[in-house]
Design a protein around this nucleic acid. Structure first.
Lengths: 134, 134
DNA sequence: TATTGTTATACTCTATAACTATA
DNA sequence: TATAGTTATAGAGTATAACAATA
Protein backbone atom coordinates (compact mmCIF):
# COMPACT_ATOMS: atom_id res chain seq x y z
CA UNK A 1 0.00 0.00 0.00
CA UNK A 2 1.63 3.25 -1.10
CA UNK A 3 1.62 6.19 1.28
CA UNK A 4 -1.59 8.02 0.63
CA UNK A 5 -1.74 11.72 -0.02
CA UNK A 6 -2.36 13.93 2.96
CA UNK A 7 -5.30 15.55 1.18
CA UNK A 8 -6.86 12.15 0.62
CA UNK A 9 -6.42 11.23 4.27
CA UNK A 10 -7.92 14.49 5.53
CA UNK A 11 -10.86 14.32 3.14
CA UNK A 12 -11.69 10.69 3.82
CA UNK A 13 -11.23 11.02 7.56
CA UNK A 14 -13.79 13.81 7.38
CA UNK A 15 -16.11 11.68 5.25
CA UNK A 16 -15.93 8.83 7.73
CA UNK A 17 -16.54 11.21 10.61
CA UNK A 18 -19.54 12.68 8.79
CA UNK A 19 -21.04 9.21 8.53
CA UNK A 20 -21.24 9.28 12.31
CA UNK A 21 -22.10 12.93 12.98
CA UNK A 22 -24.88 13.03 10.39
CA UNK A 23 -27.00 10.36 12.06
CA UNK A 24 -26.02 11.73 15.48
CA UNK A 25 -27.69 15.06 14.69
CA UNK A 26 -30.63 13.59 12.81
CA UNK A 27 -32.87 13.22 15.89
CA UNK A 28 -32.63 16.99 16.30
CA UNK A 29 -33.63 17.72 12.72
CA UNK A 30 -30.43 19.51 11.75
CA UNK A 31 -27.34 18.70 9.74
CA UNK A 32 -23.71 19.49 10.44
CA UNK A 33 -23.76 22.86 8.71
CA UNK A 34 -26.83 23.97 10.63
CA UNK A 35 -25.23 22.78 13.86
CA UNK A 36 -22.16 24.87 13.09
CA UNK A 37 -24.25 27.98 12.47
CA UNK A 38 -26.32 27.35 15.56
CA UNK A 39 -23.13 26.94 17.60
CA UNK A 40 -21.77 30.28 16.46
CA UNK A 41 -25.10 31.97 17.17
CA UNK A 42 -25.17 30.34 20.59
CA UNK A 43 -22.12 32.18 21.91
CA UNK A 44 -22.81 34.63 24.76
CA UNK A 45 -22.69 37.83 22.68
CA UNK A 46 -25.50 38.16 20.16
CA UNK A 47 -24.30 38.35 16.57
CA UNK A 48 -25.65 39.92 13.42
CA UNK A 49 -25.96 37.74 10.33
CA UNK A 50 -22.87 39.30 8.86
CA UNK A 51 -20.81 38.76 11.99
CA UNK A 52 -21.89 35.13 12.17
CA UNK A 53 -21.03 34.65 8.49
CA UNK A 54 -17.56 36.05 9.04
CA UNK A 55 -16.87 33.73 11.94
CA UNK A 56 -17.76 30.75 9.78
CA UNK A 57 -15.98 32.02 6.71
CA UNK A 58 -19.10 31.86 4.57
CA UNK A 59 -20.76 34.52 2.45
CA UNK A 60 -23.49 36.70 3.97
CA UNK A 61 -25.86 35.62 1.18
CA UNK A 62 -25.29 32.01 2.21
CA UNK A 63 -26.00 32.97 5.80
CA UNK A 64 -29.44 34.28 4.78
CA UNK A 65 -30.50 30.79 3.71
CA UNK A 66 -28.98 29.16 6.80
CA UNK A 67 -30.80 31.53 9.16
CA UNK A 68 -34.01 31.08 7.14
CA UNK A 69 -33.79 27.33 7.65
CA UNK A 70 -33.01 27.59 11.37
CA UNK A 71 -35.81 30.12 11.82
CA UNK A 72 -38.30 27.86 10.05
CA UNK A 73 -37.35 25.16 12.55
CA UNK A 74 -37.84 27.70 15.35
CA UNK A 75 -34.25 27.22 16.50
CA UNK A 76 -33.27 30.87 16.12
CA UNK A 77 -35.03 34.21 15.89
CA UNK A 78 -34.18 37.44 14.08
CA UNK A 79 -34.69 40.76 15.77
CA UNK A 80 -33.70 44.24 14.67
CA UNK A 81 -30.49 45.67 16.10
CA UNK A 82 -31.51 48.46 18.48
CA UNK A 83 -29.01 51.04 17.22
CA UNK A 84 -28.58 50.02 13.58
CA UNK A 85 -31.68 49.07 11.71
CA UNK A 86 -29.71 47.58 8.82
CA UNK A 87 -28.70 44.70 11.04
CA UNK A 88 -30.49 41.55 12.10
CA UNK A 89 -29.42 40.19 15.40
CA UNK A 90 -29.92 36.44 15.47
CA UNK A 91 -30.23 34.44 18.64
CA UNK A 92 -31.19 30.87 19.47
CA UNK A 93 -34.65 30.31 20.86
CA UNK A 94 -35.18 28.33 24.04
CA UNK A 95 -35.67 25.30 21.84
CA UNK A 96 -32.56 26.23 19.87
CA UNK A 97 -30.44 26.27 23.01
CA UNK A 98 -31.79 22.89 23.97
CA UNK A 99 -30.99 21.44 20.54
CA UNK A 100 -27.56 23.04 20.68
CA UNK A 101 -26.78 21.44 24.00
CA UNK A 102 -28.06 18.01 23.08
CA UNK A 103 -26.53 18.24 19.63
CA UNK A 104 -23.16 19.04 21.20
CA UNK A 105 -23.34 15.91 23.33
CA UNK A 106 -24.29 13.86 20.28
CA UNK A 107 -21.36 15.34 18.37
CA UNK A 108 -19.00 14.57 21.26
CA UNK A 109 -20.13 10.96 21.24
CA UNK A 110 -19.78 10.70 17.44
CA UNK A 111 -16.24 12.08 17.57
CA UNK A 112 -15.35 9.68 20.32
CA UNK A 113 -16.69 6.75 18.32
CA UNK A 114 -14.73 7.91 15.29
CA UNK A 115 -11.53 8.12 17.32
CA UNK A 116 -12.11 4.80 19.06
CA UNK A 117 -9.61 3.15 16.71
CA UNK A 118 -6.86 5.11 18.44
CA UNK A 119 -5.55 4.97 22.01
CA UNK A 120 -6.86 7.95 24.00
CA UNK A 121 -3.45 9.63 24.04
CA UNK A 122 -3.15 9.43 20.28
CA UNK A 123 -6.67 10.76 19.81
CA UNK A 124 -5.83 13.80 21.92
CA UNK A 125 -2.57 14.24 20.03
CA UNK A 126 -4.29 14.09 16.65
CA UNK A 127 -6.63 16.87 17.65
CA UNK A 128 -3.75 18.95 18.96
CA UNK A 129 -1.65 18.50 15.83
CA UNK A 130 -4.57 19.45 13.58
CA UNK A 131 -5.24 22.44 15.77
CA UNK A 132 -1.69 23.64 15.26
CA UNK A 133 -2.04 23.38 11.49
CA UNK A 134 -5.32 25.23 11.13
CA UNK B 1 -10.54 29.60 22.58
CA UNK B 2 -12.98 26.71 22.85
CA UNK B 3 -11.92 23.31 21.56
CA UNK B 4 -12.84 23.23 17.92
CA UNK B 5 -14.83 20.44 16.38
CA UNK B 6 -12.88 17.64 14.79
CA UNK B 7 -14.84 18.10 11.57
CA UNK B 8 -13.91 21.76 11.49
CA UNK B 9 -10.24 20.93 12.02
CA UNK B 10 -10.17 18.29 9.29
CA UNK B 11 -12.02 20.48 6.82
CA UNK B 12 -9.93 23.57 7.43
CA UNK B 13 -6.66 21.66 7.49
CA UNK B 14 -7.64 20.37 4.06
CA UNK B 15 -8.56 23.87 2.88
CA UNK B 16 -5.21 25.22 4.01
CA UNK B 17 -3.40 22.35 2.35
CA UNK B 18 -5.34 22.95 -0.87
CA UNK B 19 -4.11 26.55 -0.87
CA UNK B 20 -0.64 25.10 -1.34
CA UNK B 21 -1.32 22.11 -3.58
CA UNK B 22 -3.47 24.08 -6.02
CA UNK B 23 -0.70 26.50 -7.02
CA UNK B 24 1.81 23.65 -6.87
CA UNK B 25 0.00 21.80 -9.65
CA UNK B 26 -0.91 24.88 -11.66
CA UNK B 27 2.29 24.85 -13.76
CA UNK B 28 1.22 21.44 -15.03
CA UNK B 29 -2.26 22.58 -16.02
CA UNK B 30 -4.13 20.23 -13.71
CA UNK B 31 -5.97 20.48 -10.41
CA UNK B 32 -5.96 18.17 -7.42
CA UNK B 33 -8.82 16.02 -8.68
CA UNK B 34 -7.19 15.52 -12.03
CA UNK B 35 -3.92 14.66 -10.32
CA UNK B 36 -5.71 12.03 -8.25
CA UNK B 37 -7.25 10.45 -11.34
CA UNK B 38 -3.97 10.58 -13.20
CA UNK B 39 -2.25 8.92 -10.24
CA UNK B 40 -4.68 6.04 -10.21
CA UNK B 41 -4.34 5.62 -13.97
CA UNK B 42 -0.57 5.69 -13.61
CA UNK B 43 -0.34 2.49 -11.61
CA UNK B 44 1.41 -0.41 -13.36
CA UNK B 45 -1.72 -2.36 -14.35
CA UNK B 46 -3.87 -0.61 -16.93
CA UNK B 47 -7.37 0.16 -15.68
CA UNK B 48 -10.73 0.57 -17.33
CA UNK B 49 -12.71 3.72 -16.58
CA UNK B 50 -14.97 1.81 -14.26
CA UNK B 51 -12.08 0.25 -12.35
CA UNK B 52 -10.45 3.65 -11.95
CA UNK B 53 -13.74 5.13 -10.74
CA UNK B 54 -14.10 2.40 -8.14
CA UNK B 55 -10.61 2.99 -6.77
CA UNK B 56 -11.39 6.65 -6.29
CA UNK B 57 -14.87 6.09 -4.95
CA UNK B 58 -16.49 8.23 -7.61
CA UNK B 59 -19.28 7.44 -10.04
CA UNK B 60 -18.44 6.09 -13.49
CA UNK B 61 -20.38 8.98 -15.07
CA UNK B 62 -18.12 11.39 -13.20
CA UNK B 63 -15.11 9.49 -14.45
CA UNK B 64 -16.20 10.09 -18.07
CA UNK B 65 -15.78 13.84 -17.63
CA UNK B 66 -12.47 13.44 -15.79
CA UNK B 67 -11.01 11.25 -18.52
CA UNK B 68 -12.40 13.63 -21.18
CA UNK B 69 -10.52 16.49 -19.54
CA UNK B 70 -7.28 14.54 -19.18
CA UNK B 71 -7.54 13.31 -22.75
CA UNK B 72 -8.08 16.86 -24.06
CA UNK B 73 -4.87 17.81 -22.29
CA UNK B 74 -3.20 14.79 -23.88
CA UNK B 75 -2.29 13.37 -20.50
CA UNK B 76 -4.12 10.06 -20.98
CA UNK B 77 -5.43 8.03 -23.89
CA UNK B 78 -8.39 5.70 -24.24
CA UNK B 79 -8.01 2.46 -26.13
CA UNK B 80 -10.45 -0.42 -26.49
CA UNK B 81 -10.00 -3.41 -24.22
CA UNK B 82 -8.75 -6.27 -26.42
CA UNK B 83 -11.14 -8.88 -25.08
CA UNK B 84 -14.17 -6.81 -24.08
CA UNK B 85 -15.20 -4.05 -26.40
CA UNK B 86 -17.50 -2.47 -23.84
CA UNK B 87 -14.47 -1.33 -21.87
CA UNK B 88 -12.12 1.59 -22.34
CA UNK B 89 -8.65 1.05 -21.03
CA UNK B 90 -7.14 4.34 -20.03
CA UNK B 91 -3.42 4.93 -19.74
CA UNK B 92 -1.22 7.98 -19.30
CA UNK B 93 0.61 9.24 -22.34
CA UNK B 94 4.34 9.89 -22.27
CA UNK B 95 3.49 13.47 -21.41
CA UNK B 96 1.02 12.25 -18.78
CA UNK B 97 3.71 10.21 -17.04
CA UNK B 98 5.98 13.20 -17.03
CA UNK B 99 3.28 15.43 -15.52
CA UNK B 100 2.50 12.73 -13.00
CA UNK B 101 6.09 12.49 -11.87
CA UNK B 102 6.65 16.24 -11.65
CA UNK B 103 3.24 16.78 -10.11
CA UNK B 104 4.04 14.22 -7.44
CA UNK B 105 7.20 16.09 -6.51
CA UNK B 106 5.26 19.36 -6.40
CA UNK B 107 2.66 17.72 -4.16
CA UNK B 108 5.38 16.36 -1.86
CA UNK B 109 6.81 19.84 -1.51
CA UNK B 110 3.39 21.37 -0.85
CA UNK B 111 2.64 18.81 1.85
CA UNK B 112 6.00 19.43 3.44
CA UNK B 113 5.38 23.18 3.47
CA UNK B 114 1.97 22.61 5.00
CA UNK B 115 3.45 20.44 7.74
CA UNK B 116 6.37 22.77 8.39
CA UNK B 117 4.57 24.11 11.48
CA UNK B 118 5.16 20.73 13.14
CA UNK B 119 8.36 18.95 14.18
CA UNK B 120 9.19 16.20 11.67
CA UNK B 121 8.24 13.45 14.15
CA UNK B 122 4.84 14.97 14.74
CA UNK B 123 4.26 15.39 11.02
CA UNK B 124 4.94 11.70 10.48
CA UNK B 125 2.74 10.81 13.41
CA UNK B 126 -0.15 12.91 12.12
CA UNK B 127 -0.06 11.08 8.83
CA UNK B 128 0.08 7.75 10.58
CA UNK B 129 -2.84 8.52 12.87
CA UNK B 130 -4.99 9.72 9.97
CA UNK B 131 -4.05 6.61 8.06
CA UNK B 132 -5.32 4.44 10.88
CA UNK B 133 -8.67 6.26 10.90
CA UNK B 134 -9.36 6.10 7.17
C1' DT C 1 -20.71 56.72 -0.15
C1' DA C 2 -20.59 52.46 2.53
C1' DT C 3 -22.88 48.62 4.81
C1' DT C 4 -26.65 44.95 5.79
C1' DG C 5 -29.74 41.96 4.37
C1' DT C 6 -31.88 40.13 0.45
C1' DT C 7 -32.73 38.15 -4.15
C1' DA C 8 -31.56 36.36 -8.58
C1' DT C 9 -28.35 33.98 -10.82
C1' DA C 10 -24.53 31.09 -12.00
C1' DC C 11 -20.95 27.87 -11.18
C1' DT C 12 -18.73 23.57 -9.31
C1' DC C 13 -19.04 19.03 -8.02
C1' DT C 14 -21.43 15.13 -7.93
C1' DA C 15 -25.00 11.50 -8.41
C1' DT C 16 -29.14 9.18 -10.72
C1' DA C 17 -31.60 7.51 -14.62
C1' DA C 18 -31.98 6.30 -19.18
C1' DC C 19 -29.70 5.10 -23.59
C1' DT C 20 -26.28 2.18 -26.64
C1' DA C 21 -23.29 -1.25 -27.57
C1' DT C 22 -21.62 -5.02 -26.22
C1' DA C 23 -21.33 -9.38 -23.41
C1' DT D 1 -30.12 -10.12 -18.67
C1' DA D 2 -26.12 -7.66 -17.12
C1' DT D 3 -22.26 -4.50 -17.76
C1' DA D 4 -19.32 -0.29 -19.60
C1' DG D 5 -19.45 3.92 -21.29
C1' DT D 6 -22.11 7.83 -22.30
C1' DT D 7 -25.51 11.59 -22.00
C1' DA D 8 -29.00 14.43 -19.95
C1' DT D 9 -30.50 16.09 -15.92
C1' DA D 10 -30.92 17.41 -11.20
C1' DG D 11 -29.48 18.48 -6.66
C1' DA D 12 -26.18 20.18 -3.17
C1' DG D 13 -23.47 23.90 -1.78
C1' DT D 14 -21.53 27.99 -2.69
C1' DA D 15 -20.29 32.63 -4.53
C1' DT D 16 -21.08 37.04 -7.24
C1' DA D 17 -23.75 40.97 -8.60
C1' DA D 18 -27.36 44.05 -8.12
C1' DC D 19 -31.03 46.11 -5.24
C1' DA D 20 -33.48 48.44 -1.21
C1' DA D 21 -33.12 50.26 3.26
C1' DT D 22 -30.31 52.43 6.33
C1' DA D 23 -26.11 54.58 8.06
Amino acid sequence: MPTRRLGYLLKHANLRLAELTGPALEPYGIDGREFAVLSVLGTPEPLSQQEAAQRLGIDRSTMVAMVDALERKELVGRRPHPGDRRKNMVEPTEHGRDVLEKGARAMDAAEEAFLAALPADDARLLRELLDRLV
